[in-house]
Design a protein around this nucleic acid. Structure first.
Lengths: 226, 226
DNA sequence: CTGCCCGTTCAGCCCGGTTTCAGCATGCAC
DNA sequence: GTGCATGCTGAAACCGGGCTGAACGGGCAG
């Protein structure tokens, strides 16, 4: 599954790239519109993530150029929230969906999944780790067939940890993926949420699925802590 | 029964939409060819009504693109009576039938029904979730064999929720599917309608079929809230 | 023309959820 | 053991999503 990311802000670009790679995508990044258009024309991608404001050729132009050339690869446009550029125009030029900055990684992934599903390449995942089960689509979590209520944030954190079950996930990664990319608050918030999750999904069941790896991050046990 | 109407003249589009909704169809409207193609690819429709002369991608292109992609949803083409565009060509690109403007509802409806019959989907779909039952075609809703009166909008919202029972449906999705997708009013309208629906289909029966998933959307319980 | 129904907008409230912060606990290095 | 860094936790403040009642306006029937 190949994805092209056309985005000039390096921080956003590299965060998106790393995240998508973790999801198993092969990611190319273009930092200018000119490069992006070139890459999009030279290669067959399954998906294109396209910023609107770009040096060189802007996102609209890239989009309409591709469409005119008969290229119908699903395109997700990224728009800044100040109204200079318009979402409706994005769709008019042939984009398939759009996302307003700032956005968080989970939202981005959700949208990309939706696009792929539409293109008939989606496979809906439910995450499992031992007796712990999470269904992103229904937004539900179970342990031992007991459903667990989680808030939106709690759910996102758990989903992300599950998506990388078995490996050590640095706190910074969690911050970048679950919160908006430009979040610059107290990183302690991750600890707060891990704490809550433990209280909700571990303690009542006398297990420990989320382990702390001091100095490195957290690790979701693949056996759910059984 | 879901229908997509691709038509750029707003007057015609909204008239057709209202007419079809009165017949019990769930109708999405696209005002440009680009949007129409996007919607047609994104969703599973039972029927597509397609104007030929469109801004963006024209009707022929949409039709052949869909067919090439293996989408065989029945398509009814609308052609203006001046002979610039040709009915024969419509059929060549993969349309199933055509209708010359101007036309009356009666004729339109008759043709659509004929198409559905041919496609073998004339038999009605009814949605069920526990003791809640909805018949799109007859435009009726029951709970426990008690019929519930709903307005057109209320009905559409409920139908859409039922069509995705069990999963979390973002407000944005509801807006896009139930309202004209170029609706840019207050998204609060969704909350208003969910509220009304609850008052009509939940409260009198002391159940709760429509759940709120804070920060994510609404979810229709598959057991109807029993 | 009048009244009713429906769809829509709006403002305000409520409450849950998120975030911050300060203090405490734990683990590690020496 | 001592001291430092890292992680944990409860309480409080803040924020905003979601809900509701009221009011407006257009369309349609009588």
């Amino acid at each position: 599954m190949r994805v092209l990311v056309v985005e000039d802000e390096k921080r956003v670009a590299s965060a998106v790239k790393r995240g998508l790679e973790a999801e198993g995508f092969a990611v190319d990044v273009a930092l200018t519109g000119t490069d992006g258009l070139w890459l999009a024309q030279e290669n067959e991608y399954d998906l294109i993530v396209l910023d609107i404001m770009l040096p060189g050729v802007n996102g609209y132009r890239i989009c309409s150029t591709l469409r005119e050339a008969g290229n119908w690869t699903p395109i997700l446009m990224l728009t800044a929230k100040d109204g200079d550029y318009d979402e409706a125009e994005a769709l008019d030029t042939g984009a398939d969906d759009y996302l307003t900055k700032p956005f968080s990684y989970v939202v981005l992934i959700a949208r990309l999944r939706a696009l792929l599903r539409r293109a008939g390449r989606g496979d809906l995942v439910t995450y499992e780790a031992g007796d712990l089960r999470l269904d992103p689509r229904a937004h539900r979590v179970w342990r031992d067939d007991t459903e667990i209520d989680l808030t939106a944030r709690e759910f996102s954190v758990l989903e992300y940890l599950l998506s990388r079950a078995g490996e050590v996930v640095p706190k910074r990664d969690i911050l970048e993926h679950v919160w908006d990319f430009d979040f610059d608050g107290d990183p302690n918030i991750v600890e707060v949420y891990v704490g809550r999750l433990r209280r909700r999904v571990d303690e009542p069941f006398a297990r420990r699925a989320i382990e702390t790896v001091r100095g490195a991050g957290y690790r979701m046990r693949t056996d759910g802590g059984a």
